[in-house]
Design a binder for these strands. Structure first.
Lengths: 343, 343
DNA sequence: TTCTCTACTGTGAACGCTCACAGAAGCGTG
DNA sequence: CACGCTTCTGTGAGCGTTCACAGTAGAGAA
């Protein structure tokens, strides 16, 4: 009944075992492990052989204890992000970040801060230095977590332009304005001239930018702006429905709508069809996001795709740069027009 | 030009600072931190106050170095994960696991092992003891990573019954067969008799079980099996579309389809409607999963709900049990029939 | 030769924590 | 009064690594 080996995990070889095996000192092994500068080729070789023979793997906890690094970053989702969690684009982002980090041998810790309690717990965890940086998927409202992390000097990169954090925080975002421009130009190219817009919430950068793009293209085309053709939405399906009804009431001659999200565009389709308008014959509809809602809709939505795979790799790149001391940076990536049935 | 404080992160308080502040020894502080047994109420109080005052947070690396635990577990997705990564249920599972672990103050590390290189890297990482356990989302054919981890004695819980690992590995799964039985019985109760099926991949237990349930109920109802009514799918929307087309071609008199996933069922709806069949009048459609795709579809899908939230919490429960020495266990959870418009 | 410079190597000393152990204090019991 | 038992506390050692520093050897220059 002695302490026999119950599960089979035996003591892992340490750097000391490797050193003995290779006939060198701990210091030399450590140097080989960390880039191999100032190590003779012979020692280099001997150490690598010893590592292979012993199956040595560095103990990251011991390393972290002394270096202060953890070789891990947090992927932080604040607020009860039901909406984004159901968006497959989220998965693309998450996978992209994980893979980009893995290439640098950095682990990704998933952190969900829905409730205030979770917020506190996670903030403490991060500011205690248990991760080297944070990839932040925040949202519209001013986020206290983000501000706290920034103040604590934690390397931070947000997905989408954060609000109210000044220029002190890095972010990577799709070019909302240019995407909107593309879509409205597309509607113009279809011969439409009475183009309405259901915007996003105008207290978010995305909402503002997408509307700005709309305005720019109309101005550029010499079409006078008609405020009756502009209504504010909230990114929800119901919001889109309500928005389309108001547009129809105020401007019955409308022949196209640019809707600032696919979810709202679904609502717009519903309202238009209820009002007896055919899409795209009577009214062309353009969405934004290329979410599953876009293909679930009927007709399928012509929309603007955001480059989520590139967004993820850029987020990681900017974060790593910041972790090695560079200044915060903003990266804006181009979008793509996806033509389907609705326009 | 001295080493001024560049970013603002100052030296974090250690257990020693807390001890001094509270007027006790490191040992006492440590005991308070780890459950507070054998600590006088007075000392308890003093330590907690000192922790609050100093803003102390335990350094997990130092703790891990000595305990051998890491207070983190890996969430491991093996195989080219495209398929499951696009399934919204994946998100529910991931979120559920993260939250359940957070309740125990355990971090979740996301690990994606697509390529052989990644497999090797991750296997090393895990067997080196950098995580205390692994939540495995495998699926397809015999998985070398799982076998290696099992052999190394790493606590392991799979999502869904793993293939070829004997009974040595824990898993949590929905009762696929029973769910399929429920759905097919429901279709029978609607008076349908020419019931087709689009299965999942038949090299997965889920795919096999759902088909088995279908067969059982038909046999039980005394309906002869018609192989023309059975096609294999791949859980993708496109797969469902193709499957429905083949079914229609082979058995035009089909009056119902049991589809082994909602995503495929969406494709099935598309194909049926394109072929001029009304759902549910001409052909009733039953899905599986109760994913968001089910309500996004039109008509909304009658489907089988898998208890993904419970699956995640059970996975964590079983994993924690195993981490504290208990034997592997299998947990099968009941499904639920959700009636909507499609059947 | 002697000195300097470069390339390399070994050796304590941390890092911040937990754990085992020894001891102290209080209290009832033989 | 010694003894044991329980409850509580402090102390040293050590987990596996990196880092600063000291030291060695060899090459080239003076």
């Amino acid at each position: 009944m002695s302490m026999s080996n119950t599960g089979g995990r035996r003591r892992a070889p340490t750097i000391h075992d490797v050193a003995r095996e290779a006939g060198v000192s701990r210091g030399t092994v450590s140097r080989v492990l960390n880039g191999g500068h100032y190590v003779s080729p012979a020692a280099q070789e001997a150490v690598n052989a010893a590592i292979r023979r012993t199956g040595y793997v560095v103990n990251r906890h011991a390393r972290s204890l002394i270096t202060g690094r953890s070789d891990s970053v947090g992927f932080l989702l604040t607020e009860p992000q039901e909406r984004f969690f159901e968006d497959p684009n989220f998965n693309v982002l998450l996978r992209g970040c994980t893979q980009a980090l893995a290439a640098h041998d950095i682990a990704l810790l998933l952190m969900l801060a829905g409730t205030p309690d979770e917020r506190r717990r996670i903030t403490r965890y991060i500011t205690a230095g248990h991760v080297d940086g944070v990839l932040l998927v925040s949202s519209h409202s001013g986020d206290p977590v983000a501000e706290e992390l920034r103040a604590a000097g934690v390397p931070l990169v947000a997905c989408g332009k954060p609000i109210g954090l000044g220029s002190k925080v890095s972010y990577v975002a799709a070019d909302d304005r240019d995407g909107a421009r593309d879509m409205v130009r597309h509607l113009l190219s279809l011969g439409r001239r009475r183009i309405g817009v259901v915007t996003g919430p105008l207290d978010t950068p995305g909402g503002v930018e997408r509307l700005a793009g709309y305005r720019e293209v109309l101005a550029e085309a010499g079409i006078a702006l008609d405020e009756k053709l502009i209504v504010e939405g909230d990114y929800s399906r119901a919001g889109g429905e309500a928005g389309a009804e108001r547009l129809l009431a105020r401007a019955p001659d409308m022949d196209a709508v640019f809707v600032a999200s696919d979810l709202m565009a679904q609502g717009v389709l519903t309202a238009l069809q209820r009002a007896g308008r055919r899409v795209p014959q009577d009214v062309a509809v353009g969405g934004f996001d290329d979410s599953p809602a876009a293909v679930a809709a009927s007709p399928e939505l012509t929309t603007i795709r955001q480059p989520w795979d590139r967004i993820s790799t850029e987020m990681v790149r900017v974060l790593l740069a910041q972790m090695s001391g560079e200044d915060p940076a903003a990266v804006i990536l181009p979008t793509e027009l996806v033509k389907r049935g609705s326009a």
